Amino acid sequence: MTDLPDTDARIERQPLLDAILTRLRDMIIEGALPPGTRLNEGQIGQQLGVSRTPLREAIKYLASEGLVELVPARGAVVKQFGAREVRDMLEVIRMLEQQAGLIACAQASDAGIAQVRALHDRMLDCYQRRDRLAYYKLNQAIHSAIVALADNGALSEVHSRLQTRLKRIRFIGHEGPERWAHAVAEHEAIIAALEARDADGLSAILGRHLTQAWERVRDDLPQT
């Protein structure tokens, strides 16, 4: 019987790749790697203390997510989205979340809704502490959780793909105390409608929320 190959290195490598991916995503979200920035593997590898091989894998994965694009003669570049692209993606996300909200109010379990409430409460705690990145991640987790309550794999897949591409865009939508406070108020209304199983109310609130998301970022985007 042939011995299985030693897989220890492969097992250890995956957490490293995940850690690099998380750090690079955060750097893109927070603007440490602004749109249009070329990803210099040597410089970033030195900054993160990792070799080029897992870093290169992480960059390829980010390209598959749409956060990075591979440009001939330039290499990997942080994706720059124009206003038209962002508007179109937010419009699709709006329709997906409104549909998910209708379904969730009709069929989600009480336990499932309670899990969304728990995420919401954690998000509010981050808001009180002004931990913006942690707040943002929980904010996006809430949107994904509401979509997941619809129990439609195709809907969740498309939503996840678009939401990933808009990570930086959605983050800048919370810049400034007034914008941030308004986004929190919208989320308070979302969770109240979900807990009340007010399908029409939740759909309307989600629609306004995504429309406001566009209005908060449109002037900051290249008009292409």
Score class of each variant (00 low, 15 high):
60 K>M: 00
61 Y>S: 08
61 Y>E: 12
61 Y>A: 12
62 L>N: 03
62 L>P: 08
63 A>V: 08
63 A>Y: 00
63 A>S: 12
64 S>F: 06
64 S>G: 04
64 S>A: 08
64 S>H: 05
65 E>S: 09
65 E>K: 13
65 E>Q: 13
65 E>M: 13
65 E>R: 12
66 G>L: 07
66 G>V: 08
66 G>S: 03
67 L>H: 01
67 L>T: 02
67 L>G: 00
68 V>F: 06
68 V>K: 11
69 E>T: 03
69 E>M: 06
69 E>G: 09
70 L>T: 02
71 V>K: 11
71 V>H: 09
72 P>T: 06
72 P>H: 07
72 P>K: 08
74 R>F: 05
74 R>P: 01
74 R>T: 03
74 R>M: 02
75 G>S: 07
75 G>Q: 07
75 G>H: 01
75 G>D: 07
76 A>V: 01
76 A>E: 00
76 A>P: 12
76 A>F: 10
77 V>T: 05
77 V>F: 12
78 V>R: 06
79 K>M: 10
79 K>T: 08
80 Q>I: 04
80 Q>Y: 03
80 Q>H: 07
80 Q>F: 01
81 F>W: 15
81 F>T: 05
81 F>A: 00
81 F>I: 02
81 F>P: 06
83 A>Q: 14
84 R>Q: 11
85 E>Y: 13
87 R>A: 09
87 R>D: 07
87 R>E: 15
87 R>Y: 15
87 R>S: 07
88 D>F: 03
88 D>R: 14
89 M>R: 14
89 M>V: 01
89 M>E: 15
89 M>C: 00
89 M>F: 09
90 L>P: 01
90 L>D: 03
90 L>R: 08
90 L>T: 00
90 L>N: 10
90 L>Q: 12
91 E>H: 13
91 E>Y: 07
92 V>R: 15
94 R>I: 05
94 R>C: 10
94 R>W: 02
95 M>G: 14
95 M>C: 11
96 L>S: 02
96 L>F: 05
97 E>V: 11
97 E>F: 05
97 E>D: 13
98 Q>V: 04
98 Q>D: 02
98 Q>A: 00
98 Q>R: 14
99 Q>G: 15
99 Q>A: 13
100 A>N: 06
100 A>L: 03
100 A>Q: 07
101 G>S: 08
101 G>R: 03
101 G>A: 08
102 L>H: 10
102 L>R: 14
102 L>F: 11
102 L>P: 02
103 I>Y: 09
103 I>K: 15
103 I>S: 14
103 I>A: 15
104 A>V: 04
104 A>N: 03
104 A>R: 05
104 A>P: 06
104 A>L: 02
104 A>S: 07
